[in-house]
Amino acid sequence: MPHAGDIIGSLRFAAIDFESAGAARGDTDQPVQIGIAACSSLEAEPELWTSYIATDRPVLWSASQVHGITTEMLADAPPFHALWPDIRSRLGGAVVAGHNPATERKFLRRFPGHGFGPWLDTLVLGKMCVPGLPDYSLSTLCDALGVSPSVDALLPGRQWHDALYDALASFLVVRFLVRELKLSGQPLEVLGKAVGK
């Protein structure tokens, strides 16, 4: 597991995003899509992986309006637990990035003792490094940094709120800021409050 004193340029990174079914009052939300962009270092090209995830309840209309995933699209999707080997191989031993990753951390708690992290929050990182934006949504941050065209080029035909698209966007935000601020030779702790356990 990476530590605060480890040099950023020597670390593995993985960015993750989930899309969910949405939750009616009193229900627990469930993931319906996962996307991970992982690499051996920030200078390497990320390996991209995504999967739909089976759910035992219908995708809410309101959630489908955000990400475009319908219950019918999940008909042949694997159950979440079946994806564990793929998730572990991509996130294990990496700094795990996400944009306000509370949902990602919540869904990964279904695998107790996984030990992923430390976590790097691109929302906090964006606020630290790019002050004055009108908002800090992932799309606004990527547009401000000029990385949106790179996400489009690597994932043509996908868009915001696709789990793989959002994961890749988070990865590219981290890579861009580390390069621009010349942080690859610095310890991970230099990212301060953006890094958590």
Rank of each mutant, 00 (worst) to 15 (best):
A194V: 04
L133W: 08
P156S: 15
L181E: 15
V195W: 01
P58V: 10
A97I: 07
V195L: 03
L188E: 03
G22S: 06
G117C: 02
G93T: 01
L191V: 03
A54G: 10
A63E: 06
L125Y: 06
A169N: 10
L183T: 06
T28E: 14
F107S: 04
A15S: 08
T103V: 15
L74Y: 08
Q65F: 12
S64Y: 10
A169Q: 09
H114K: 04
A75P: 12
F18K: 03
L42N: 00
D6V: 04
A169V: 11
V178A: 05
S41C: 07
V66F: 09
V178M: 08
L145D: 07
T103M: 14
L120Y: 01
R88F: 09
T55V: 14
H67W: 09
T122V: 09
E19K: 07
W160G: 15
P156Y: 12
G132M: 11
S184H: 13
A144C: 11
G9L: 04
F111P: 01
G185R: 04
S10K: 06
L123P: 08
S139T: 15
M73H: 13
F116I: 02
A24R: 15
S139L: 15
V96Y: 00
D121H: 02
G22Q: 06
G93Q: 00
A37T: 08
T103D: 11
K182N: 15
A169I: 10
E104F: 04
D135P: 12
S40R: 10
D27S: 13
F13M: 01
F13A: 00
Y52F: 14
T71L: 10
P131F: 04
H81V: 15
L191W: 03
T122D: 08
F176D: 15
A54T: 08
G92I: 01
P46A: 08
E19W: 07
L177Q: 06
S64Q: 13
L125A: 08
K182D: 15
W160S: 15
L83Q: 03
L60R: 13
G115P: 03
H81E: 15
A21G: 13
I34Y: 06
G113P: 05
A63D: 11
G146H: 13
I34W: 04
R25P: 10
D166M: 08
I16D: 01
S139I: 14
L154G: 10
F171I: 07
H114W: 02
D6E: 05
G9W: 04
S170E: 07
S89M: 07
G26P: 07
I87P: 02
Q65S: 12
G115Y: 02
A163P: 05
L188N: 03
A44G: 02
K127C: 08
V178D: 05
I36E: 00
L168N: 07
P2F: 01
S62N: 12
L42R: 00
K197V: 10
F171S: 02
P78K: 07
L155G: 10
L91D: 01
A37V: 06
H114S: 06
P156N: 14
H67P: 05
H3M: 12
T103G: 13
H81N: 14
G126C: 06
V124Y: 05
S148C: 13
C129V: 14
H3G: 11
G92F: 00
S62T: 14
L154C: 13
A144Y: 07
